[in-house]
Design a protein around this nucleic acid. Structure first.
Length: 415
RNA sequence: GAUAAAAUUACUCUA
């Protein structure tokens, strides 16, 4: 039985979540019983596929069988709730179970990732008071949240207090800090920190290099990014899909479409294989630079390579088409979302409405605006702004007033 | 009781 758990665990670690779920079904039908361990693995798989409902059904089944979920089960569920954006529910669950260090790690991560650094810091304090010692994972989580928020100085203070509590920083701490500098146009500081890190005996990994590479690419320093790429290769670190995706984005941004295409084609032929983000990055770059024909070719290629376009891919193309006057193509793409069974999101509608208004197609825009609610995408402040501007352009003051009232009723204010 | 299951870093669509 524990053999089975081990098997499931290793498959789950390889991220083959659906395989695990299938195996569990087979296991059940052949009468092999679950235990807390295998149930928890199953819950984690559902969480990682964002099938929270299924995850909680498994929990219910566990309870019905008289099995007691343990701290790991709860941590898994808390993490799943956070991944699904339900941080409040995660907190509620957290409050009714006996906390552990890892459980704190999961909620703090959920809080920091959802823009609640303050609550994350409060949790850290609460944890310290409760007698549980925060570990390096918890500190790195907080430091990352602060760095991404541009609060690198505060992050450095957290490092000091962490050190004085006897927790030593690690390679991740350096990577997180470097990324903080890179994201806020402080490449000199990032580079200096890289040198400090190497000088202290840490061996930079693929993350370290990709962080710096991406930083240089963001300021269009392709030369320096390429130099780092060779350096990392010489040191024996293989650039991965993320590293190349960063190059594709950076090259497109610098207008070097040909270079980006070369990187992309090389990935297709020699690996590492392009993933969804490769297509998102490349298509977005192509569309922003007005290379719509090539974008459509890549879009076709994507489907030939059995990579399923998502709504994000469609949004990018729709946006590109509107920007370069091909609004009929954009409308066609919008319609194919329905044919393909892909759910529209707020980006889709905001792009469509502002695009249609730009073309003077106010009625069409208004029609979409009115279908948003029933399509599960309630308009946000940006939708209202775009729609109102369209209504004003078409001198439809009565509709504009009505929309303004609705907006006020919903407590949404203009941008 | 565990040589099995849980939390942290890079690429990633709109004004």
């Amino acid at each position: 039985m524990s053999e089975f758990g081990r098997l499931l665990g290793s498959i789950a670690r390889g991220k083959h979540y659906t395989t695990v779920i299938d195996l569990c079904k087979q296991m059940e039908s052949s009468g092999i019983a679950h235990n807390v361990h295998t149930f928890t693995i199953l819950i984690n798989c559902f969480c990682n596929l964002s099938h929270l409902g299924c995850a909680f059904s498994v929990l219910a089944k566990m309870l019905k069988l008289g099995l007691h979920p343990n701290a790991i089960t709860f941590t898994t569920l808390i993490n799943g709730l956070c991944l699904d954006g339900k941080v409040h529910d995660a907190l509620k669950l957290f409050e009714v179970v006996e906390p552990t260090v890892v459980m704190y790690g999961a909620v703090i991560n959920g809080l920091c990732k959802s823009g609640n650094n303050e609550l994350g810091l409060q949790m850290l304090k609460k944890m310290e008071r409760s007698g549980l010692e925060p570990n390096i994972v918890i500190y790195n989580t907080i430091i990352d949240g602060l760095c991404k928020d541009g609060r690198v100085t505060e992050a450095e203070k957290v490092i000091d207090s962490m050190n004085s509590r006897g927790v030593k920083h690690d390679l991740l701490t350096y990577n997180v800090l470097m990324n903080g500098f890179c994201l806020h146009n402080q490449m000199e500081k990032a580079t200096k920190l890289f040198d400090v890190m190497v000088g202290s005996g840490y061996v930079p990994d693929t993350f370290s290099y990709t962080i710096l590479i991406n930083g240089y690419l963001n300021i269009e320093r392709i030369d320096e990014a390429s130099r780092l790429l060779s350096e990392m290769c010489n040191k024996g670190w293989l650039p991965n899909t993320v590293t190349y995706n960063a190059f594709i984005g950076g090259l497109c941004k610098a207008g070097r479409i040909h270079g980006a295409q070369e990187v992309f084609e090389n990935m297709c032929c020699n690996g590492p294989p392009p993933n969804l983000n490769t297509y998102i990055t490349f298509l977005d770059g192509l569309c922003k630079q007005g290379h719509l024909d090539l974008a459509l070719t890549v879009f076709k290629l994507m489907r030939e390579r059995k990579m399923n376009p998502t709504v994000v891919i469609y949004n990018i193309l729709i946006h590109g088409m509107f920007n370069f006057g091909m609004f009929e193509v954009a409308r066609g793409l919008f319609l194919s979302l329905f044919h393909k069974g892909l759910k529209r999101n707020i980006h889709t509608y905001n792009k469509m409405i502002s695009g249609l208004c730009k073309e003077g197609l106010f009625d069409a825009a208004y029609q979409l605006f009115r279908q948003m609610e029933s399509d599960g995408c309630p308009p946000d402040s940006w939708t209202y702004t775009a729609m109102l501007s369209g209504l004003h352009q078409s001198n439809d003051t009565s509709t504009a007033d009505q929309v303004l009232r609705e907006m006020a009723d919903k407590g949404i204010s203009a941008n």
